[in-house]
């Protein structure tokens, strides 16, 4: 019993950290630009494909591929922000939804054409393959990697928001974009950088989470609800909220997989719908703070 509980909590933690990495950028764009982005999962998929291609085709070492994948996702996101998404801030929500779901379809189609319709594994170095013995239970090393990278990104996000000039500008823009602009902060650049960094984190999550959320063309559509759920349950705009929501939903789905495998998805959605009926604005709703 105790070991089952421990398994659920540990696996749930690893899964939750992956969900957090992928979703945190989404909550920032939603809180910052009021931009509903259904295409966010695409950046995780791009990261996964980039890492897989770099490792199998160019023989790049795993750690380097991980970083490069995040950069690739960030650069593609920056290009999209400048060319298309920038013009959608302030447009009606429906337009944002339609545009980004259109981007999702284009992304799925392009991924299918470039990489085929089957799952693409992200090969691991020997050191990270196989299982690790934690003393009371054996678990795939990959999941430990996911949890560690997740914790490191959490630290990086905290440093970025709390200890850098960019963090100050970002928080000022979230609080009051107009006042921030009048004080000389280039809010457009803040938006673009925040969007791109969020996408890079999603790319990172896509690579280390490849075991839990396999990389395939339908990735952005298949896990769309999962990523949106993290943001909605956590409270749009709240980084801390998405962390808690990601861990909560990750643990719930993992528990479902252990206890009633056929009903994990239903269980997850029901928990989510209950939380949202109780608090429609999420657990940690704040009007204008990160």
């Amino acid at each position: 019993m105790a070991s089952l509980l421990a398994s659920i909590l540990i696996d749930g933690f690893a899964y939750g950290m992956v969900l957090f990495m992928v979703s945190v950028g989404l909550t920032v764009t939603l809180g910052l630009m009021r931009f509903v982005n259904l295409a966010h999962g695409m950046f995780a998929m791009i990261g996964g494909y980039a890492a897989a291609s770099l490792i199998t085709m160019a023989g790049v070492p795993y750690i380097l591929a991980l970083i490069l994948a995040a950069i690739v996702a960030g650069i593609i996101a920056l290009g999209l922000e400048i060319s298309v998404i920038r013009w959608m801030y302030g447009r009606p929500e429906l337009d944002q939804v339609l545009l980004t779901i259109g981007l999702v379809f284009i992304g799925i189609a392009l991924a299918g054409m470039l990489f085929g319709n089957s799952l693409v594994p992200v090969p691991l170095p020997d050191m990270l393959r196989g299982a690790s013995d934690l003393g009371f239970r054996v678990m795939p090393t990959q999941r430990i990697v996911a949890a560690v990278v997740g914790l490191l990104s959490l630290l990086a996000i905290w440093l970025l928001l709390d200890r850098t000039m960019f963090g100050i500008r970002l928080r000022a823009t979230v609080d009051n974009a107009r006042a921030a602009g009048e004080l000389g902060i280039n809010t457009r650049r803040v938006y673009a950088i925040a969007f791109s960094v969020g996408a890079a984190l999603a790319g990172l999550g896509g690579v280390v989470g490849a075991e839990l959320l396999p990389v395939e063309p339908y990735y952005p559509l298949k896990y769309l609800v999962l990523f949106l759920a993290v943001v909605a349950v956590g409270g749009p705009g709240s980084v801390f909220g998405s962390l808690i929501a990601a861990l909560l939903l990750g643990t719930v789905e993992t528990a479902g997989k252990y206890l009633a495998p056929g009903f994990a998805t239903i269980g997850l959605f029901v928990v989510m719908l209950l939380v949202l009926s109780w608090r429609p604005d999420g657990l940690f709703h704040r009007k204008s703070r990160l």
Binding site: L30, V36, L38, E93, V97, L224, V225, L228, A229, V231, A232, P236, F269, M272, L273, L276, P280, D281, G282
Partner: peptide
């Protein structure tokens, strides 16, 4: 907003 949209998908 996004919460509404996500709930319609979830349902």
């Amino acid at each position: 907003g996004l919460t509404f949209l996500m709930m319609t998908v979830a349902i």
